[in-house]
Design a protein around this nucleic acid. Structure first.
Lengths: 139, 139
DNA sequence: CTTTACCCTGTATCAACTACAGGGCGTAGA
DNA sequence: TCTACGCCCTGTAGTTGATACAGGGTAAAG
């Protein structure tokens, strides 16, 4: 018996941070704001996680990587948790987020073109006249 | 004498908020963090601005619109204020910011393609199976 | 003289975490 | 068995770039 069962309480306890790559403080933060459920504790107060927690945190992390806000993630989770989950509703929310991403890309691209245009006018020399400053500073 | 000089103190007093379109609270915030200098005050404690302030705040607002952080703005302002302003240095900082913008666009575009791909797999119907959820939720 | 519109200070709030202080606990090696 | 190390616990404060509000003063118009 290598990893034997000495007290059933600690059987297959999982280090959630290591299993997901998520920062411990972030896990605790998700717990306090109700994104993750409070796990059971050992007699000494240590949190005990199982595979459900790993799965749920994985969902949260993937959604965050795709740029969903925590409120949007909360909304998606409530669809998953409750019986109100329908593909149509999820698709609607994902599409709304996609529109948002597209708008942010457009904003950044217009910034990019203005900025690139101004930088291109710079001489880049060791002189105090600068096209970037002139462009930013009102007369 | 229409806008006559009755006490020199209030001569040509400027409403900085109206002149720039910047929120009053934001102006005060910029003052407390040292982005804008503390203006002189009237006897009753009202701030009195001049065209220098308008110009400086305009600079800050334009730079912010182009996505510079306040710390980057502070750096550009210190170049303008001190005698250390050279076109080369400004160009270097603007280019660094431009690289940053490009990286953020690339990130958003990869999010966009992943998300668009998943949403496209949705049936969009009133059923509880959803391709988006499946893609986000680990096995 | 009163109303309205603005100004003042100071503090709290938002998102999404991160960092730290100050303490307890568990385990590995000597 | 002692001790050192590393991790866990709670609670609080800091980050960025503002915004909002409470509670009070003042300036200018009718």
């Amino acid at each position: 018996m290598t990893t034997s069962q000495r007290s059933t309480a600690n059987l297959r306890r999982i280090d959630l941070s290591r299993a997901t790559g998520c920062n411990v403080e972030t896990i605790r933060y998700y717990e306090t704001i109700g994104i993750l459920p409070s796990p059971p504790r050992t007699a000494k107060g240590y949190r005990v996680y199982d595979h459900e927690h790993v799965s749920r945190l994985g969902f949260v992390m993937r959604a965050r990587e795709l740029g969903f806000t925590l409120e949007e993630v909360r909304g998606l989770l409530s669809l998953v948790d409750g019986d109100g989950l329908t593909c149509g509703e999820v698709q609607r929310r994902a599409q709304a987020h996609l529109d948002d991403v597209a708008a942010r890309i457009a904003d950044l691209q217009s910034i990019q073109s203005v900025l690139a245009g101004t930088v291109a006018k710079c001489t880049g020399k060791d002189v105090p006249e600068c096209a970037v400053i002139d462009a930013l500073m009102p007369a």
